[in-house]
Design a protein around this nucleic acid. Structure first.
Length: 824
RNA sequence: GCCGGGAUGGCGGAACCGGUAGACGCUACGGACUUAAAAUCCGUUGGGCUAACUGCCCGUGAGGGUUCGAGUCCCUCUCCCGGCACCA
């Protein structure tokens, strides 16, 4: 019978368990509840998982992505990454590494604050409760976290250093204030970074994002654009994530071209990646928000242009994205093409984005799809200036590379050459230069919310913006009465007079504190450094600790952080390198993204009601069974469908493994050569499969071994087996290890190594094919000659049938694998 | 539209570098044990043909190709998932 998993702890379930594990328990059966409890307690008592620097030994830093301790707790989907990182941590421990495997809390953030608004509970109270619950659930996994290194971003001793880093950026001019239209979520009532806007909506709550003019703190991440892009090459990360970061940074090379304006002294600056198409520019377009729109609107066009600009401003970014129909108005003004002095009409249209490039473009409808569409709509001239490589004018718009035509002195040049030559010639005249643009913007770093790190700046009427002296850090969050965001662009902190009123660190006069807080990402940008030295009061971490432990050797987490957290953390690390805190550019050498666990074809979530609670499964089957099933469910990087019955197979495996171990200890059979070969093959296979993250097949390798090994194995085999299994099923392994007479933990043992000599097979099963079709197999000595195999193959009826009376014209023999007889 | 990834039994999945497709597990079915059930153990389980076989045919999304040999490589296409998307 498959036990029904109910989400509540009912008496019915208890009686079932009593029947299985209580009254009817016999000695031969593995009692996971007793045994797992025992070992978890013992590990804790012996501080087995506390790790120290030991420069004599190699280190391995295995990190899980910083969890936000949500109120809903863990479901089996969350387990997956934690199990994976723990298997690796334990595996590396057995290989003799000092393994740093820490855990902590990214505990600032909106859910706790929203809860506070609703229920009036202080965010720190609910955060502490959630952390307690999360910790209890993490303990269930049986992971080897070093809890002595636990950290929380909300701890003033932690955010002191988050603020300290901000101050260093401020000093370097990388943190600055700017009044600009930013993405603003009307529901969360706070500004958002570009990275937090997904398809025009708030990443967190899904509301349509508005543009709001606010004075914001910004971090100059764009100063690191090229470095962030270039060093992606050095990372052992999933291709997908590298691509996502690459396209997020969005580097493109081109030219900035200045168009003189008819009747004005100023010039109009545009960015293009296709300077070779300059002769095909038949109109210009300004974004509706472009600063020159008013100035360039000719008297008779004022009303229409103003109306258009007003409408564009009223459209939300969602509306603007959904409707792709080209709209626009003519300003009545003209620009002059710097290469041929042609008059070019200037239009205004919302298909040009104010935040990219210079917010204005030269339109070349013959060679750009968007410009083509616009020109068609408004009946503007379309002039081809690029021919296909064979010289013919292709269908328009033609956006590929080709040969320049209708381009005066540049005719005949290829696109690549043309780009260079046109740019050079403009540069000579002072009307252009080569330029690189990025899609990535500077990071909007302030939030108008309460539950975050206060930005350590004081505003003084005399001295202006003054950084809080480092010795005065942390600037602690005060208690407030109301957590309600004001929605006016000020955080709830603004209402706390006694906190806001302060003295200026420079002139000692009265001044006001900055009331914006940092975004949730701030704390997670450097937490991996803090784990190396979590109790340091003098520095964010000591240089020795950083040098020994960093960088992170294996970083495990979901792909949802592909750009946000991973890009910000890389930026912080590069900055910290520049100010001498660390000596490397990249914090995470190797990244592994585990797949999601789905139920009924959908991602598990409380709102869908399809969560599978691990607590109940641990109760029924044990943590080891759930751990192994998590591994067995499928390739760890691929999404997997949860099947309630699936864990049964693992449960049986564990029982069978236990029985094998108990019988082996009783009977103590001697080691025979078959058993020895089987063992070494297993050592080889399991090691390879852990190394290559094929944990699902590592589990099946054990099952195969068990199916073949018989009723009992010799002591040496059992010892090795126990060590091999220990990373996946640590409690079970400890118990067997102890029963074998060992007094120290199995994790002080050595990972076994396969002896190449024991891997050699003396017999081989060779498939026999006739014209490529397999007709049977023959078992021969591994070093059998082709003749011998051919001879043996004669004995197969199917081979005879297939050959008939045709003769063998060719025989292909792959030693030990296949014999293919080609007959005619 | 662009960039990734994928499609293998009833199900989850395996298959190193092109070499016995379906390992391992779930489910289902049959058997043993049991008063009975659970648990456990043994067997069968891609489809079809065949009285039987150690026999034959078909089969890795579709169609072509390369090769002695293709799930794997190449070309064309269909569908699914993820990311980006008026970025000049």
């Amino acid at each position: 019978m498959v036990p029904r998993i109910s989400s509540s702890r009912t008496g019915q379930k208890r009686s079932f368990l009593l029947c299985v594990f209580g009254r009817r328990t016999n000695v031969a059966m593995y009692n996971h509840r007793e045994i797992e409890q025992k070992w978890r307690k013992r590990w804790e008592e012996q501080s087995l998982h506390q790790v120290r620097m030991d420069t004599e030994k190699p280190k391995f830093y295995c990190l899980d992505m910083f969890p936000y301790p949500s109120g809903t707790g863990l479901h089996v989907g969350h387990w997956r990454g934690y199990v994976l990182s723990d298997v690796w941590s334990r595996y590396k421990t057995l290989q003799g590494y000092q393994v740093l495997h820490p855990m902590g809390w990214d505990a600032f953030g909106l859910p706790a604050e929203n809860d506070a608004i609703k229920k009036g509970i202080h965010p720190s109270v609910s955060t502490d409760e959630n952390i307690e619950n999360f910790k209890r659930q993490l303990h269930e996994i049986g992971a080897m976290y070093d809890w002595s290194r636990e950290i929380s971003t909300t701890d003033p001793q932690y955010y002191r250093w988050t603020q300290w880093i901000f101050l260093q950026m401020y000093k370097q001019g990388l943190a600055y204030q700017k009044e600009m239209p930013i993405n603003f979520c009307p529901s969360c009532q706070t500004g958002l970074a570009n990275e937090e806007v997904v398809g025009g909506a708030c990443e967190r709550c899904g509301s349509d994002v508005e543009k709001k003019h606010l004075k914001q703190w910004m971090l100059k991440i764009t100063a690191y654009a090229d470095r962030l892009l270039d060093s992606l090459k050095t990372l052992d990360w999933p291709e997908k994530v590298l691509r996502m970061q690459e396209s997020w940074i969005g580097r493109s090379e081109g030219a900035s071209i200045e168009f003189p304006l008819e009747g004005h002294d100023r010039r109009l600056d545009v960015f293009t990646t296709r300077p070779d198409t300059l002769f095909g520019a038949t109109y210009m377009v300004l974004a509706p928000e472009h600063e020159l729109v008013t100035e360039l609107t000719a008297p008779g066009y004022k009303a229409k242009v103003e109306e258009y600009v007003r409408q564009a401003a009223a459209k939300s970014s969602v509306e603007r994205m959904v409707s792709r129909e080209k709209t626009g108005v003519f300003t009545g003004s003209y620009a002059i093409n710097p290469v041929n002095d042609e008059r070019i009409p200037i239009w205004v249209s919302d298909y040009v984005l104010v935040e990219y490039g210079s917010g204005a473009i030269m339109a070349v409808p013959a060679h750009d799809e968007r410009d083509y569409e616009f020109a068609q709509t408004f009946d503007l001239p379309i002039r081809p200036v690029i021919a296909d490589t064979d010289g013919t004018i292709p269908d328009l718009p033609f956006v590929m590379d080709g040969i320049m035509v209708n381009s005066g002195p540049f005719n005949g040049l290829s696109t690549a050459e043309g780009k260079e030559r046109v740019t050079e010639s403009l540069a000579e005249k002072g009307l252009g230069r080569a330029e690189v643009q990025y899609k990535m913007r500077d990071w909007v770093f302030s939030r108008q919310r309460y539950w975050g790190e206060p930005i350590p700046i004081v505003h003084c009427p005399r001295c202006g913006e003054v950084p809080v002296p480092e010795d005065d850090l942390p600037v602690e969050l005060p208690d407030v009465e109301r957590y309600q965001p004001t929605g006016t662009g000020e955080s709830p902190l603004a209402a706390i007079d006694h906190w806001v009123q302060t003295t200026c660190p420079a002139c000692k006069g009265s001044a006001r504190r900055e009331t914006n807080t940092m975004p949730q990402w701030a704390g997670s940008c450097w937490y991996f450094l803090r784990y190396t030295d979590p109790h340091n009061d003098d520095e964010l971490a000591s240089p020795e600790a950083i040098r020994y432990w960093m960088p992170v050797d294996l970083y495990v987490g979901g792909v949802e952080h592909a750009v946000l957290h991973l890009l910000y953390a890389r930026f912080y690390t590069m900055f910290l390198k520049d100010i001498g805190v660390v000596d490397f550019d990249e914090p995470f050498k190797r990244l592994f993204n585990q797949g999601m666990i789905c139920k009924d074809g959908a991602k598990m979530s409380k709102s869908k009601g399809n969560v599978v609670n691990p607590d109940d499964l641990v109760e029924h089957y044990g943590a080891d069974a759930l751990r192994m099933y998590q591994l067995f469910i499928g390739p760890p990087e691929v999404d997997a469908e949860w099947m309630d019955g699936g864990i049964e197979g693992i449960h049986r495996f564990i029982q069978r493994f236990w029985s094998l171990a108990m019988r082996s200890m009783e009977q103590q059979p001697a080691l025979d050569s078959d058993q020895e070969k089987r063992l070494h093959r297993l050592i080889q296979t399991v090691t390879e499969r852990i190394e290559s993250f094929k944990l699902n097949t590592a589990v099946s390798a054990f099952m195969e071994y068990l199916n073949e090994a018989g009723k009992a194995v010799d002591r040496q085999s059992l010892e090795s087996l126990t060590v091999l299994l220990a990373p996946m099923a640590p409690h079970l392994a400890e118990e067997i290890w102890a029963r074998m007479g060992h007094t120290r933990s199995v994790f002080t043992a050595q990972w076994p190594e396969a002896d190449p000599e024991k891997l050699v097979q003396d017999q081989a099963t060779v498939a026999v094919q006739v014209n490529g079709k397999t007709r049977g197999t023959v078992t021969v000595a591994a070093d059998a000659s082709q003749d011998e195999v051919e001879q043996a193959a004669e004995g197969i009826t199917a081979v005879q049938n297939a050959k008939g009376n045709k003769s063998v014209v060719k025989a292909i023999y792959v030693p030990g694998r296949i014999l293919n007889l080609v007959v005619k």
